[in-house]
Design a protein around this nucleic acid. Structure first.
Lengths: 217, 217
DNA sequence: AAATAAAATTAGTCTTGACTAATTTTATTT
DNA sequence: AAATAAAATTAGTCAAGACTAATTTTATTT
């Protein structure tokens, strides 16, 4: 079994993979808020355990086993997020930190049972795809509110920005997953967006806002 | 906030309190499977944090704050057990170890939300009372199957023995919380019990078995 | 009461996973 | 290509929480 700290490193490396760049000790250190020297130590440890491979040229890479394990942690994290939001009525901005703890609970069947209990959700409340029990990933949303044409009707699928500031702004605007939004017009000057939420009175939001909201047309 | 290890010591001391005896370092060490020397270290630490008081004469005692904190951990543990059994379909004998991890998840409102979600249960699947949000305890069951008179009809309320061996035997006998049992007769020779489970064919169980099963007449 | 046994405590060690400071290696400029 | 900057690494330290071994204190026998 792996320690809390090892799991957090694996998850971090997993996340950095998505960016497509070479994963350096410095990048990991920054991401975790740790000292690069500590990262070097842990790279050695995870390499010994054959969860990662480290090559100066290629940087850090997850081995097949490391990938599998990291995927499991992400699966657990996202399932717990669904649970916290749907069953315990937490808000969007409260669930991440709790899931960060819950993801480390070790039991062979827990994730699958939770998955079943939740009705096999495909996306977490932030719209991130939940890895299936077999490791497969539902495909990620990619269209943002800023991408659609004026007049288009769409639905909120997920958030691209998961900062507390953004999530709380969404709560204030009463926007949730599934909320219907119509893009009324784009202001050419600064690309800000005039929208109507669930058919209500028009509001103007920034380009940055539009780019942070993943939608289904 | 307190560490995992500190929480485990508090919980251990809380449990030992119920036995009514003086709580010595050795007793704690045995209960946790730790070395007495380690226990002495931790006693110092928890004393400094004012969670316990240690007096050679009186032994270890929880302070008001320590008591409150230990009660919260027990509350979380028992609520999670209910969740695992009722919502995730675990068996009686599987839930303890997982709840042992879940009880340490730190969030101010999690226990209360879980409590609400579960419908404010009063007892966990082992029949132990779940401390209320205000710290009050539902009263514990005390009548065992061995206490009732021949002919009596009763219902399983809880288990007094939570060893895996006993719980698995219950599963084998198809006995659960709420199961109806009639005590047909007591064999004078060795106090073994002839019972009928849910009106089915008679079976004989040992005195030890009867004393391990808490019931409501 | 002295002898012995048990319990408590102290002192020092180990591992994990952080850290800082110093050094070496690699990349980037000029 | 040399100089400089950045990144990686090594060496040594620290705190938490466990350990062992040795010692002191308390309890129990004889």
């Amino acid at each position: 079994m792996h320690t809390l700290s090892e799991e957090n490193y694996l998850k971090c490396i997993y996340r950095l993979q998505d960016k497509g760049q070479k994963i350096t000790p410095t990048a990991i250190a920054e991401s975790l808020g740790n000292n690069p020297a500590s990262v070097v130590d842990m790279i050695r440890k995870l390499t010994d355990k054959k969860l990662i491979a480290y090559d100066k040229k290629k940087g850090v890479e997850l081995t097949a086993e490391g990938q599998k394990y990291a995927t499991l942690i992400v699966r657990r994290h996202r399932l717990w997020e669904v649970f916290l939001l749907e069953k315990l009525d937490y808000h969007w901005d409260e669930i991440h930190d709790i899931a960060e703890e819950l993801e480390h609970i070790k039991d062979a069947t827990l994730a699958d049972r939770l998955d079943k209990f939740l009705g096999f959700p495909e996306y977490d409340p932030h719209g991130d795809p939940i890895p299936k029990a077999n490791g497969k990933m539902p495909k990620r949303y990619s269209t943002t509110l800023a991408d659609v044409k004026a007049g288009a009707h769409c639905r909120v699928a997920a958030v691209k920005d998961t900062t507390s500031a953004f999530l709380q702004y969404l709560i204030k605007l009463n926007i949730n997953i599934g909320t219907k939004i119509q893009l009324i017009e784009k202001i050419p000057f600064d690309s800000s967006l005039v929208i109507s939420i669930e058919g209500n009175e028009q509001k103007t939001v920034s380009q940055k806002f539009g780019e942070s909201l993943l939608i289904i047309v």
